[in-house]
Write a protein that binds this DNA or RNA. Structure first.
Lengths: 185, 185, 185, 185
DNA sequence: AATGAATGAGTTTTCATTCAT
DNA sequence: GATGAATGAAAACTCATTCAT
């Protein structure tokens, strides 16, 4: 459907050039569609922007399809917070969304929901891992998930602040050892 | 001086409405100065914006003037990462700057320098504390500072994503216990 | 028939919002018909507009069906120039048409024809009344009709300029006494 | 001052082409000013339009400066309701304003005020004429003024509906005899 | 007949910048 | 130094019309 396609274009443009340089014309040109069409579907720019931000946030993060042990899954998810060319697009988009959402109640609610969902997902993975004997059982899953989320977001922010190889290595090590600490010997 | 006053206005406007809705007219109106004057002093908008971002980042964060034990100083600095009405303005500005800087090499360098400066400052505090016997001496200061910075930035991000009382309490506790862990018994 | 229905919608929209804010989309939305359909039937907007204006002007003003004496009929027709909630729609439409028609020769002709038709109709009523002995016979029917038309249009304009209860009462009185003056004793 | 000049241009354009075909570009071109300038002064089109309508309505109608007997003055004012090339511009503007004002409370109030002002002015002229022995003293000035206003507006409307020489002659005669009727013998 | 997505020309509006005072 | 009116290029938005279905 055309609407979704346009939202994808907006997502790309924002991750590449930031919200402040998004213009209707840019979107029109990149998508080979007239500005009239965009306005026909979204009524105005703000609508388009919000729809795009929301859409990107509800993209089926493929976590659910991760295979393997709980530990492997957790490592994979946590590692997605390490910047690489491949995933940069998402995090550049994310930081724009985060900045923008602080001024938009509706988006703040979405952020908040997304955080809760993530927390539950990570906690569930830990619980599963404990039941399968992969993880230490003396840790509270929710508490642990929250600590891990704090760590990965801290490392992510550091990477966005200072994006060199060294800090990525540091991030990888920290994530690795944080999960090591969960594993039962 | 007038220049600094204008930069302050820009800082306010960005923290309130985001970089993308900063206009010369806004600045002129808020500061009761004509657009002509602003251009006279800063030549153009880009200059003004960059000057404002730089200025805000070099504001005499009064850390250096903190009195008391190293532990007290470290707690105070770390606690400044907890959102409160009073300090929100800074973090709202910060997140906008961070999003913006990912696309501006020059600003990325500033971010990077600021991170390094912070890291050195925190490490120095820890070293001082160790020398005064306040902190455990078995910890590497730089390593510890880096870990603390990761934690406070993670907690900050969480607070921006989900800004309720509960998460602020959580942030406060985490910061508190992270520093407790440094203290020698 | 669908065509007439659409013309009614156009009439409503013009009387409510004026000709200058009539858009094809408005018409489509109000009538629950697609813009494509409207263009299919009327070819383009100008056609639709003209058809609507013409149609409204040829609406079977139910005068012809008025029952009763010539005097009663004349009073009823003249009283229709008094603004009431019920009939406002017509006069709001009329004033828009009048303003518009001053720049459209074709419509000016229609206006002119309508005026002549009205004049003949009123004159005929007066003639009938004279023959039936209801009206004074010393008055020229056409001259009298013309004077009455001047009066009712003058009162109408006053009501559009200043729409309060007092002026409506005044209009009613003037119309009443203008017709009283025709009645033979 | 430039603002007033622009309002004059808008007045001209409306009287020539009607409100519905007024565009910012037209105004800009006719006044040799950029669209940016117009928006700088009036913020948006609606503001400009309203300002122009109001301005035109408050133009110092030169009545007050009419010289001569009360009768001469009254004749002159009343005769200004007869369409002539010279004065058409005003009445074409006026009919547009009237149609537009029915949908704008603020303008309706202006219309209403203007009507009252006119009524008072005409009544005063009649009173003056009576005192000077020019007019019959058995007529109530306000009542008479109201009747004259009804007549001239009726004749005006007729002229707008059917703008031929015959009707202008008729209007002239009616106005003439209406005032004759006031004159004392 | 009817639809409504798509168009693109035209319109309004925004805004950084210039410049005469 | 300071002003703010003026600019024009670029942006957002409107809308009658077309056309494949």
């Amino acid at each position: 459907m055309k609407q979704d396609y346009l939202l994808g274009v907006v997502y790309d443009l924002i991750s590449e050039h930031g919200i402040e340089s998004l213009t209707m014309r840019n979107v029109a040109e990149r998508s080979n569609v007239s500005t009239g069409t965009i306005n026909y579907h979204f009524k105005n720019k703000e609508n388009l922007l919000i729809a795009a931000l929301e859409e990107a946030y509800s993209l089926p993060k493929d976590w659910a399809n991760y295979k393997g042990s709980s530990e492997a899954q957790l490592r994979r998810i946590a590692n997605s917070y390490i910047l690489r060319a491949k995933s940069d697009r998402w995090w550049f988009f994310w930081i724009n969304y985060l900045a923008y959402s602080t001024r938009h109640p509706k988006m703040q609610i979405r952020q908040s929901e997304r955080y809760d969902k993530q927390l539950r997902f990570w906690a569930q993975l830990i619980t599963d891992g404990q039941e399968k004997g992969e993880f230490r059982t003396d840790l509270d899953p929710v508490e642990t998930a929250r600590r891990l989320l704090t760590t990965v977001h801290g490392l992510l922010t550091l990477q966005l602040m200072k994006s060199d190889a060294e800090i990525r290595v540091y991030a990888r090590e920290q994530i690795s050892s944080a999960i090591d600490a969960l594993v039962s010997r």
